[in-house]
Amino acid sequence: MSTLLEVSGVSVSFDGFRAINNLTFQIAEREMRAVIGPNGAGKTTFMDIVTGKTRPDAGQVLWGEKSQSLLRMSESRIAQAGIGRKFQRPTVFEDQTVAENLMLALKKKRGPLAVLRFRASAEDRERVEQLAGEIGLNAALHRKSGELSHGQKQWLEIGMLLAQEPRLLLVDEPAAGMTAAEREHTTALLVEAAKTRAVVVIEHDMEFVRRLNCKVTVLHEGSVLAEGSIDHVTSDEKVIEVYLGR
């Protein structure tokens, strides 16, 4: 499998605090990866760097076959290049309907003039309905997303990510605040997604990670502590010391 994203030697500090310290990370196409680590390990900052929200002090972030550097690109260009992100707290456009939210996310031209000329085709509307079906929001298609429950918002956000058709999906704690049944559904959605694209899941919940059944990267104090299967990392001494043992 070819490398889709390569992060090498990245460091960033806030006011003297080193959030990311010489981090190196790779992910291949159509790979599922879980990133775990204690609070302050730099998981969210890592996502911020990949998506262009935070500029690193040093290091390289390369993307795709052509090994483009993401560091000089704006957030929107990175998103257009095929990296989708789901935030820790569900962030959907609460003042707009589920259908509008999904329509916004559909992979289309993003420029103002193109959008001004845009007219939703029958295909587009079908795709929206199909996505709504996948995330179980078919009945709520014309409700304002602000009226949805917390879990429904999480799914809507995942649905929006899928609508973007990204090559890499960054998902930050997707299962937070979900019931057991909802987690099940979410896991299924993610595993399904990983068949066609790379998925990076940041999670605290080991049970959830175990169910994803994939390679795990453990972050600690801004760099990689261990990497391997879930059984491999959970038996690693250092990991146990900083994360699991206590």
């Binding site: 998506t51 929200k53 704006s74 957030e75 929107s76 260009r77 998103a79 257009q80 989708g84 992100r85 935030f87 962030t91 959907v92 456009f93 609460e94 003042d95 707009q96 509008e100 329509m103 916004l104 996310a105 993003r110 420029g111 103002p112 959008v115 001004l116 845009f118 007219r119 939703a120 929006m160 973007q164």
Partner: peptide
């Protein structure tokens, strides 16, 4: 109305989210 209106309201409500969806917020 239509998608353009949807985008600018999205920018109004959550600028960075719109950016992560790939919309060049500054251009809009």
């Amino acid at each position: 109305s239509g998608k353009f209106g949807s985008v600018i309201r999205a920018i109004r409500d959550d600028e960075s989210r719109a950016r992560f969806l790939g919309y060049p917020v500054e251009g809009y």
